[in-house]
């Protein structure tokens, strides 16, 4: 039942889907969206691959191991950032990067402005962590479901 045209178009869309998801993740502190939503959009790319009949690519064991790594490392980064607040003298989850200069450390300009990406302290980093984690997690769910479906059909 695999259509060559659908498969081809889907693989063209695949990177765009990922990039859009990444956009939602990185602009999480400025625009609607954020880590979870962006991660879900990125996982949609995997879903696209699966429904267009390319699941032999998406559900390969090597890929699944990669999704698991995404999930674990995203979560680890998130908790490490939360503990970082504690190490910097604040409480757990203290935003220790905000207004400190450097990476995401710019102070937010007062009044209406276009939104500067380089603000927010740990929040954009946490968004990134959640985005990676959700991408990995939802992809694993999708792959597991497809495998169960295949087993049902084949068995």
């Amino acid at each position: 039942m695999r259509s060559r045209i659908v498969g081809y178009i889907a693989s063209v869309f695949y990177p765009f889907c990922l990039v859009f998801g990444l956009y939602v993740v990185t602009h999480g502190h400025l625009t609607p969206g954020g880590g979870f939503q962006g991660g879900a959009v990125m996982a949609t790319a995997v879903a696209l691959m699966i429904v267009s009949g390319m699941f032999t690519v998406a559900v390969r064991e090597k890929k699944v191991v990669r999704y698991k790594w995404c999930e674990a490392l995203g979560l680890l980064l998130f908790v490490a950032l939360a503990f970082g607040g504690m190490l910097q003298g604040g409480s757990f989850f203290h935003n220790w990067l905000a207004n400190a200069g450097g990476c995401f450390g710019e102070a937010v300009a007062a009044g209406p402005n276009g939104g500067a990406l380089n603000t927010g302290g740990t929040i954009p980093l946490m968004n990134l962590a959640v985005g990676v984690e959700v991408f990995g997690g939802i992809s694993i769910i999708l792959v597991t479901m497809v495998r169960a479906m295949k087993e049902n059909r084949d068995g």
Binding site: G90, S91, F92, H94, N95
Partner: peptide, 11 residues
């Protein structure tokens, strides 16, 4: 009482 996400837990 422990306040999360604050500059100090006793904020």
């Amino acid at each position: 009482r422990y306040v999360f996400g604050a500059p100090s837990p006793a904020a």
